[in-house]
Amino acid sequence: IEKFKLLAEKVEEIVAKNARAEIDYSDAPDEFRDPLMDTLMTDPVRLPSGTVMDRSIILRHLLNSPTDPFNRQMLTESMLEPVPELKEQIQAWMREKQSSDH
């Protein structure tokens, strides 16, 4: 029984630690959010139409349809242009958020 109590305490400790580690990014500025999924972008790319999306989301879309989801023009992965300035701004915002939450 004592071992179970210790195990339960350890589990509670881990759960509390994980809860502290989770950071809420739901208040991200609109320009940091993917327009299709409304999630925080981690690897922004510009489509030929000028729309900026997260790379993982547009690549997932391209698996089903080789088109720009906003104007239905033909689109391939090679046409995606990285946006390193925005990526750095997002990373800086995330770092600031992490340091203010801890």
Rank of each mutant, 00 (worst) to 15 (best):
Gln73Arg: 05
Val83Met: 08
Arg55Pro: 00
Glu31Ala: 10
Asp101Gly: 09
Lys97Gln: 14
Ala28Ser: 14
Val15Met: 08
Phe4Tyr: 09
Asp24Asn: 05
Glu77Gln: 06
Ser49Ala: 15
Ser100Ile: 14
Gln91Glu: 14
Ile14Asn: 10
Leu40Pro: 04
Ser56Phe: 03
His61Pro: 01
Ala28Pro: 10
Met53Arg: 01
Thr51Ala: 08
Gln89Arg: 13
His102Pro: 11
Gly50Cys: 03
Val15Leu: 11
Val45Glu: 00
Gln98His: 12
Glu22Ala: 05
Ile90Phe: 03
Glu12Gly: 07
Pro66His: 08
Met37Thr: 06
Ala21Val: 11
Lys87Gln: 15
Ile90Ser: 02
Gln91Pro: 01
Ala21Gly: 06
Ile58Met: 03
Arg72Leu: 02
Ile90Met: 00
Glu31Asp: 12
Leu80Arg: 00
Thr67Pro: 00
Leu6Arg: 15
Ser78Arg: 10
Asp34Tyr: 05
Glu31Lys: 06
Pro69Ala: 00
Thr51Ile: 14
Arg20Gln: 15
Lys3Met: 06
Glu88Asp: 11
Asp27His: 05
Met37Lys: 02
Arg72Ser: 02
Ile1Lys: 10
Arg55Ser: 04
Ala21Pro: 12
Ile1Val: 06
Arg55Cys: 02
Arg20Gly: 11
Asn71Thr: 15
Asn64Lys: 03
Tyr25Phe: 11
Lys10Ile: 05
Ala8Gly: 11
Pro69His: 00
Asp30Glu: 09
Met41Thr: 00
Lys17Gln: 11
Arg46Gly: 04
Arg95Gly: 11
Lys10Glu: 13
Gln73Glu: 05
Met94Leu: 14
Ile14Ser: 10
Ala16Ser: 12
Pro44Ala: 01
Leu62Pro: 01
Arg72Cys: 02
Asp43Val: 03
Ser100Gly: 13
Asp30Gly: 09
Ile23Lys: 14
Leu40Gln: 03
Gln98Arg: 15
Leu86Ile: 08
Pro66Ser: 09
Glu2Gln: 06
Leu63Ile: 13
Asn18Thr: 08
Gln98Pro: 12
Glu13Val: 05
Glu12Asp: 14
Asp54His: 03
Gln89Lys: 11
Trp93Gly: 02
Arg60Trp: 02
Glu2Gly: 06
Asp30His: 08
Ser99Cys: 08
Glu81Val: 14
Met37Val: 07
Pro66Arg: 08
Ala21Ser: 11
Asn18Tyr: 08
Asp27Asn: 11
Val11Met: 12
Leu59Pro: 01
Phe4Ser: 10
Lys3Thr: 07
Glu13Ala: 13
Ala92Ser: 15
Thr42Ala: 13
Asp43His: 05
Glu85Ala: 07
Asp54Val: 00
Met79Ile: 04
Glu31Gln: 06
Ser78Asn: 09
Pro48His: 02
Met79Thr: 04
Met74Lys: 12
Leu40Arg: 02
Lys5Thr: 07
Leu47Val: 15
Pro66Thr: 05
Thr76Ile: 06
Phe32Tyr: 11
Lys3Glu: 06
His102Gln: 08
Glu9Ala: 15
Lys87Asn: 09
Val15Gly: 09
Ser99Gly: 10
Leu7Ile: 08
Ser99Ile: 10
Arg33Ile: 05
Glu2Ala: 06
Leu6Val: 09
Met41Arg: 01
Arg33Gly: 02
Val83Gly: 01
Lys5Glu: 10
Phe70Val: 01
Glu12Gln: 07
Ala19Thr: 13
Glu88Gly: 15
Arg33Ser: 05
Ser26Asn: 15
Glu12Val: 06
Phe70Ile: 02
Leu63Arg: 10
Val52Ala: 05
Ala92Pro: 02
Asp38His: 04
Leu59Met: 15
Glu13Lys: 07
Val11Ala: 09
Asn64Ile: 08
Gln73Leu: 11
His102Arg: 12
Lys5Gln: 07
Leu36Val: 14
Thr67Ser: 06
Thr76Asn: 08
Ile14Leu: 14
Arg95Ile: 10
Pro48Arg: 03
Arg20Trp: 14
Lys97Asn: 15
Pro69Thr: 00
Glu22Asp: 08
His102Leu: 10
Glu88Val: 11
Ile1Thr: 08
Met94Lys: 12
Thr39Ile: 07
Thr39Ala: 04
Leu62Gln: 02
Glu96Lys: 13
Arg72Gly: 02
Asp101Tyr: 06
Gly50Ala: 03
Pro82Gln: 06
Lys87Met: 14
Ile90Leu: 06
Lys97Arg: 14
Arg20Pro: 13
Leu6Pro: 12
Leu75Met: 04
Pro35His: 02
Ser56Tyr: 04
Pro29Ala: 04
Glu77Lys: 06
Pro35Ala: 02
Leu63His: 11
Val52Ile: 12
Pro82Ser: 08
Pro69Arg: 00
